[in-house]
Computed example of a mutant assay.
Amino acid sequence: MDDQQWYERILRSIDDPSLGLPGFPSVYQQEVFVGKSNEVALAEAFTFYKIVKSGSYPLRRSSRVLDFGVGWGRIIRFFLNDVDPGNLHGVDVDDAILDVASSTGVPGNLAQIGPNAPLAYADGYFDVVYAFSVFSHLSEASATFWLAELMRVLKPGGTLVMTTTTDHFLELCEACSYKESGRNQYEEDYARMFADPAAARRRYAAGEHVYAPVAGNADVLEASNYGWAAMPPAFVQRQIGGLAQSVAFVDDPSLLPQGFFTVRKNASFAQRVGRKLRSLASA
């Protein structure tokens, strides 16, 4: 079915388990992991799903897709409309949320990974890899490791799509730090996020990775690896630009609350020759 029909069907599945689609954890569990629940959480997931599809070659049932940071499975379920469940893979560092995902029938091959440990996949295994709100939390060392690792498991010509916070988030932190009274709890947290929010913005503008160690809910989310991060385009270009045919960046809060990168890995020699032959044949 087309994307809109599929989206409406998934929305109905919130209250209708007879549709045979994955279920949902409690509202509390949903919001702990993504800050949203049910219809609002799915609306954001659907937007990102369409971004991933639009940046990739047409998906087939045989395409292999990796959800890096699968959580409770709000995004991976959308790919059931395009890809055979056996070709869907989801990994996360939190074994507790993977248990939740499995118990609610989230599709695909779900596996726990270490904070900075190689993935158990061969080089060039996936056609598409995506990561929603993962690099927005990784330290510079972790981001550097995972950018290289995700490019390793991506096929030549494959697509990596990932989100990150941007200067919009750093600007919010700076604005909260200037507010002297009447701050709510969120504003208090943002105000204290960076010792010098203005300096953090300057580093981001200069193309530096910006990170505030916070730690997370799961035992594996230690402050050395996990906090709040903003990953500018120049940083990504330095890390994996040499492996990529293209690195595109969009920062549009009206579309998604985070910016997102769409990276196309360099094609293999055989792929380049094939494209050239097809171009000549159509000329």
Rank of each mutant, 00 (worst) to 15 (best):
Q239S: 14
W6N: 10
F194D: 11
F235Q: 06
G124A: 15
L66G: 01
Y121R: 13
L172G: 05
L88K: 04
F132A: 07
V65D: 01
V250A: 11
Q237V: 01
L21Y: 04
A212K: 05
A191Y: 01
R192C: 05
E149C: 12
R61Q: 06
S246Y: 01
A248K: 08
N81F: 00
P253D: 08
Y226P: 01
H209F: 06
G259V: 09
S133I: 05
Q245K: 04
G20N: 08
V40K: 06
S279T: 12
L80N: 06
Y28T: 07
N87W: 03
V106D: 06
E187D: 05
M1L: 10
W6V: 05
W228A: 13
V153T: 12
F48Y: 13
A199F: 07
A205N: 05
F46I: 06
R202S: 14
L256D: 00
A270I: 00
V52L: 07
F132I: 06
G71R: 08
S13Y: 00
A122T: 14
P17H: 02
T159N: 03
A122M: 10
T163K: 09
V106T: 15
R201L: 11
V70I: 13
V52M: 03
L11V: 03
V210P: 09
S224D: 15
S279E: 15
E188Q: 14
V250M: 11
I97D: 08
